[in-house]
Design a binder for these strands. Sequence first.
DNA 1: TTGTAGGCGTTATCAG
DNA 2: CTGATAACGCCTACAA
Lengths: 336, 336
Amino acid sequence: MADLKQIEIARLAGVSQATVSRVLNNDPQVNEEMRQRVLAVVESLGYVPDARAQSLRAQRTRLLGLVVHRSPSALAYDPFFSALIASIIDQAGKHNYHLCVDAARTARSQRAIYEELLRTRRVDGLILVESETRDQRIARLSQEGFPFVLIGRYQPEDAIYSVDNDNIGASRMAVEYLISKGHTRIAYLGGPAGLTVTRDRLQGYREALEQHGIPYDPCLALFTESSIAGGMDAMRDLLSLDQPPTALLAMDDLIAVGAMREAQRRGIRIPQQMAIVGFNDTPLCSLVEPALTSVAIDIPALARVATEHLIHLIEGRTVSPIRTIVPAKLVARESV
Amino acid sequence: MADLKQIEIARLAGVSQATVSRVLNNDPQVNEEMRQRVLAVVESLGYVPDARAQSLRAQRTRLLGLVVHRSPSALAYDPFFSALIASIIDQAGKHNYHLCVDAARTARSQRAIYEELLRTRRVDGLILVESETRDQRIARLSQEGFPFVLIGRYQPEDAIYSVDNDNIGASRMAVEYLISKGHTRIAYLGGPAGLTVTRDRLQGYREALEQHGIPYDPCLALFTESSIAGGMDAMRDLLSLDQPPTALLAMDDLIAVGAMREAQRRGIRIPQQMAIVGFNDTPLCSLVEPALTSVAIDIPALARVATEHLIHLIEGRTVSPIRTIVPAKLVARESV
DNA sequence: TTGTAGGCGTTATCAG
DNA sequence: CTGATAACGCCTACAA
């Protein structure tokens, strides 16, 4: 039962091992009778081909890779990442691929993990997230000709496959919403400054301000890590300003919730004294008091496009690099 | 650059391919000079062995499998699972293993996924979670002699490797805490009734009641799905009872938060009119108002033990099956 | 239509 | 101590 291989099946069915292989691969030109004979044995023993041998032979593992730049605890509590991973697993499964997830805490180990995944050919392709302006990984992977897609942005935009939210537009929309509510002193809480998402959303923020004749005040644009603690820190900084803002757009819900908590801790009422908009529309939004207004990202769509493009790339159906933009929308709740 | 193999290295170093392999595997009996010559070429070209070939040859992939019985969206928003996955990735990485995560929505596809992972030998071993009393998977895997560990419980307990929280004890402790606060009408909200966790925590609940002479009322023990919606439903049921409870222990934080929300929506004050204890001590606890008292599970410890035992099993260091219990503790906040 | 045989890149067992 | 050589299980020309 344990070490079943095609040659065993062949013996029992009285055919050659090659025929077994052909039957299993639906080769149309095998005699119907033999096919049945082989299939009968295969079924009865529950034979399934060895993925390791197939991987070597076919030069592909049917494994997709995703490396997350988070410590385990940060990953665990970031609903955006959890949702993304879940959606990718789902999509990959539909195409008969599996997902191999790795985490890289330190910058040094990041490098090593990407190298290992790439060079060992353990995975057929990679999905990249959280791109930086001059992303080392992207340069490396393009140069090696390794299949990958980016969820994010990279320049020049037509150089690689990428999928992204309409970050600039979504951010502009969110700020315009705040302006329409009468706010003019609006802060922006970004994630790490190097990330393209941070910058794109900053740009949308600035565009909206400019369009409404509100001067951009650099004191109101802060960068922090994507966590509740990061949001709390940022809010402390904002409140120590001479002229604190009356509204803020945070780059994700964790930051927004952290900021909200810190403000409330100091007796500031939301939304009366401080309006807050988050990003990602995670379930957190409806759990906090008041419920958080947030920009909804279509994570399943992001995952779907990324996965499908990657599989196309892997399977050699080469099309020219494509950039896909997934729309976002504002979900109004009580925090504005 | 692309298709580098040992034979290329061998040619450039002027040795045989076998020697290259030996050097890479730290065979102590290769001449130091040759070793250096080979290593020089390896370094300069950045050669790394092909994992696919190694997998076939060694009959192992260095991949661990985890199948999550959740729909993508449910998985995404369940902090317990996210934390568990993250911790396993972390541990596996330390032993040079990777994690392959799959999700099985329907019962039918579950079966298929386990079969495929097992039979194709795509992964070297499996980590199982959410065991049921008569778990099909476990019977199957034991029978096939496939390496696996269970995070949960299965009987007989010494038949397999398993790691578990002290669920009975933890639950008893939580209920005793509620009793010490003067409650006598205490409800239990379990997850799906077939799961051993659900039953174990129910048992601890009953033991605590019994010990304090409080009769067990089956109307107060409800089973629902692990989600906020599940908790809301359950609370509705509880409140429609003739004698609603004044306190409740929920099997996880999602259920607890759902129950809390529903109670608050109906004007019930927490903890004055209804005390609530959750399970897992996820970050949700400090996000809700009032902050949720919860039983803290040591997820990293669970992941560590499970991963290490599994790797032992895979690598053939056979010890007799072991059951490990990880202690839990109560984290008191404001909801009691 | 079917069988034979070579090779995917490694590792490990032999001789030398 | 090193170099041929044979697997590992599968797929696919090529030959029959």
